[in-house]
Amino acid sequence: MATTFSDAKSELMRRAQESLAANVTDSGLTIRQKVALTCRVLFDAGHDSGLAGQITARADEPATYYTQQLGLGFDEITEDNLLLVDEDLHVLDGQGMANPANRFHSWIYRARPDVTCIVHTHAFHVAALSMLEVPLIVAHMDTTPLYDDCAFLAEWPGVPVGNEEGEIISAALGDKKAILLAHHGQVVAGASVEEACSLALLIERAARLQLAAMAAGTVKELPERLAREAHDWTLTPQRSRANFAYYARRALARHPDVLRS
């Protein structure tokens, strides 16, 4: 016989979070492996734009991070061909060079000690929305992890290879998890690789939904209290791990070469 039908929503949510914490654990993958898988996951989701875009994640040594080699597409990244670089983008381990545009990642890492992974892509619908110079509107339940957590840079500062762009982008991001860059693309600043991967997929879906809704009429905003509740409910480490595990399984099935074993 069911015993929970008179329980308060808050109590049901609390139990569910406890169950998630007990049942969803870390994958055991290394940071390099998670970054390589994220590259393949995002490639399959249409985030590739030639060689544009960067994915980085903090490494063990302070002021160092992993990133892909310039000249390789997201679909070519493996755990073995990732680079280890310092804040000045000097290669500490690996062959080739990092994308000079990674400089703004260094600025974000310096400003945000809570960030361990940054995903920057020019995904199609995000790029299209950025051309309208309007902020991302989170108005659907699925996209609430980004509710009040996506900043907007309304003016394009130019090619982001200088310190000026690093200052501008990191300041505009502030304490948010993501930012839409006008005439450019998106940046996600995650507390983990799993969170950054999940939010990068989500911001492209949110942009696609917004463009479709704007073409049909006026986008109606969510009630603030319920949207914040949904944001906090869905944006947890356990949910990010569960999401990433699913995405990683799909990527490994399609790209068995991404990991050494």
Rank of each mutant, 00 (worst) to 15 (best):
A139C: 06
S240F: 09
Q95Y: 11
E61H: 03
A206P: 01
P145E: 10
N102R: 09
L72Y: 13
R239D: 01
A123N: 07
R112T: 04
L12R: 15
L129N: 07
A196P: 05
F124G: 00
Y147D: 02
P145V: 06
V187G: 07
T121G: 02
A59Q: 01
I203A: 07
L82S: 08
T64S: 07
T78W: 09
D80S: 10
G190S: 05
A253G: 08
E165A: 13
F152K: 02
G185E: 02
C39A: 10
A127P: 00
R110M: 09
A245S: 14
L132W: 09
E61N: 09
L20D: 15
D26C: 03
K9N: 12
K34Y: 04
G71E: 05
T38K: 05
D26Q: 12
L211F: 02
L209F: 14
D75M: 10
A213T: 13
S261K: 12
A245G: 12
S49G: 11
H184S: 08
P135Y: 14
T25Q: 15
D257G: 00
L29Q: 06
D86N: 14
V188I: 15
A16Y: 15
N23G: 14
D142E: 12
A16W: 15
M97S: 13
E18S: 14
R32I: 01
